[in-house]
Design a protein around this nucleic acid. Structure first.
Lengths: 136, 136
DNA sequence: ATTTAGAATTGTAATTATTACAATCTTGAA
DNA sequence: TTCAAGATTGTAATAATTACAATTCTAAAT
């Protein structure tokens, strides 16, 4: 599996020791670009790793986020979603099917008022995705 | 108090019956543009309205949001904040003091991929506000 | 190979925002 | 005045996340 090497590489690049659990989480994120929640990840990995704990998933995701290896997406709902792609991009949430899509970041003129120092922008679109729009 | 008339007017414009509780919530939102949480509002109004219930605040905010009288802001944290200003604008969260500022919406070219139907955009900036930046 | 300290993982319990729901109260039309 | 719909209230439930202490793992030093 190429993904394993890939996952380990991502971890090492961010100076995170590639434990089994961390590697599995990153592998999952690489293979599932649907912006899963902590619980999604736990439910998916749990069968293969019977001793896995939910807390571990939260710990791992926290470490990954702190070291810039993943991006947290807080969109509309109560639970946080995670994205292994940390490149500059926006998100689109379909209000019908609920799926979240990666979207190219719009080119925008950032005319922030005097004195505001920007570090980061999140852009969230809401609307209907092509698939849902075509149905009916 | 001018705010009272203002609050009632906002409610009526959105076809919401101006009950005492609803009017007080809207008044609070008009006078406190700091994007309060449901709990902020409850704590502020509760002393003057001893029988007020937290559930009522949630109900009122839900009604207001469904009728387009307020805007919910889901930025970074676990709890939702509310903004009486429903005009098109962005938000800036200071990562030092935690305050949230209303910011002019950046002019942006919305080149969404083919087939995506946009209904709404949220733009959240993160960074340091002028006040925090000037300290040290 | 063994020891050992620090890091990582685990399980349980606590926290917290929000919702569900049923009971009560209000209001305005008949 | 009555009555039904709508609004408010209080309590209990839900669900995501965190706190924390105990255990396990790992990698370096002996």
């Amino acid at each position: 599996m190429k993904t394993l090497q890939n996952a380990i590489e991502i971890l090492e690049r961010h100076e995170i020791r590639p434990s089994v659990q961390r590697t599995e989480v990153v592998k999952y994120l690489i293979e599932h670009r649907c912006h899963p929640t902590a619980d999604d990840i736990f439910m998916a990995l749990s069968p293969e790793m019977p001793t896995l704990s939910r807390t571990t998933i939260y710990n791992v995701l926290k470490t990954l986020e702190e070291n810039g290896a993943v991006r947290a997406i807080v969109i509309d709902e109560k639970n946080v979603r995670y994205d292994i792609c940390v490149d500059d991009h926006a998100h689109f949430k379909c209000s019908r099917c609920g799926r979240i899509f990666d979207i190219e970041m719009p080119r925008m003129e950032r005319q922030l008022p005097e004195g505001f120092e920007m570090e980061n922008v999140d852009v969230y679109y809401y609307g209907i995705c092509p698939e849902c729009a075509s149905k009916q």
